[in-house]
C-alpha cells in the first residue's frame, strides 16, 4: 500500500498555511519504517487543479487542510461523501467532489480518501500562524503518524 499525504494551504496567508505546517512536521517526525510507502506533497492549488494528485497511483490519499470554524485549533475529520458537487463559475470553486465523481466515471482506480482539517478563523495575508492552530498542527501530525502506522504496519494487506 502506498499513501499520499496531500497538504493544502497558502504559506503567506496566516492560519491558512496550517496544512503545510502539518506536512513539515510529518516530514520531520515520520518514522523510518514508514517513509518508503508515504509520499508527502504540499500544494497551494485549488479545486480541479488537485486532480493530478489523485492520479498518482496511491491506494489512499490523506488530505490535510484548514477549514473556517467557530473556534480555531480544533481537529476535524471530514467525510469525503459529505462533499457534494456543484456547478462552479470558476476553477476556484470546483473541487474535490468533482474530482471524485470524475474518477468514478473514468473507471480510474479511486484511492481511498481521508480528510483532516484544523479549524481556523478568517486568515489574513502576512499574519503568523496563531498559537492554538500551531498546537493543533502538532497534535494532528502525531495523529497522522499513528494513523499511517495503523494503515501500513498493523494491517494484514
Amino acid at each position: 500500500m502506498r499513501i499520499l499525504v496531500l497538504a493544502l494551504g497558502n504559506d503567506i496567508l496566516g492560519d491558512d498555511a496550517v496544512g503545510l505546517l502539518v506536512a513539515d512536521k510529518l516530514e520531520r517526525l515520520l518514522p523510518e519504517e514508514l517513509r518508503s510507502r508515504v509520499d508527502i506533497v504540499k500544494s497551494s492549488q485549488a479545486g480541479f487543479y488537485l486532480l493530478d494528485y489523485f492520479l498518482m497511483g496511491h491506494d489512499r490519499v490523506i488530505v490535510v487542510d484548514s477549514i473556517i470554524g467557530p473556534e480555531s485549533g480544533k481537529i476535524v475529520e471530514i467525510d469525503p461523501d459529505s462533499l457534494k458537487p456543484a456547478s462552479a463559475p470558476s476553477p476556484h470553486y470546483s473541487g474535490l467532489p468533482e474530482i471524485f465523481s470524475l474518477l468514478e466515471k473514468l473507471s480510474s482506480p479511486i484511492p481511498d480518501v481521508e480528510i483532516y482539517a484544523i479549524t481556523i478563523n478568517e486568515p489574513y495575508i502576512g499574519a503568523d500562524i496563531s498559537e492554538p492552530v500551531k498546537e493543533a498542527s502538532e497534535k494532528l501530525a502525531n495523529m497522522l503518524i499513528l494513523r499511517l502506522r495503523e494503515l501500513l504496519l498493523d494491517s494484514h494487506e
Partner: peptide, 23 residues
C-alpha cells in the same frame, strides 16, 4: 450564472478550496 461564468471570474484569490464546491 452563465452570464458571469463566461468571464471565467477569478475572485477571492489566495486560497485553495475545501470543501471545494460552490453552493
Amino acid at each position: 450564472e452563465m452570464a458571469f461564468r463566461a468571464y471565467d471570474p477569478c475572485h477571492a484569490c489566495a486560497t485553495h478550496s475545501l470543501p471545494g464546491s460552490m453552493p
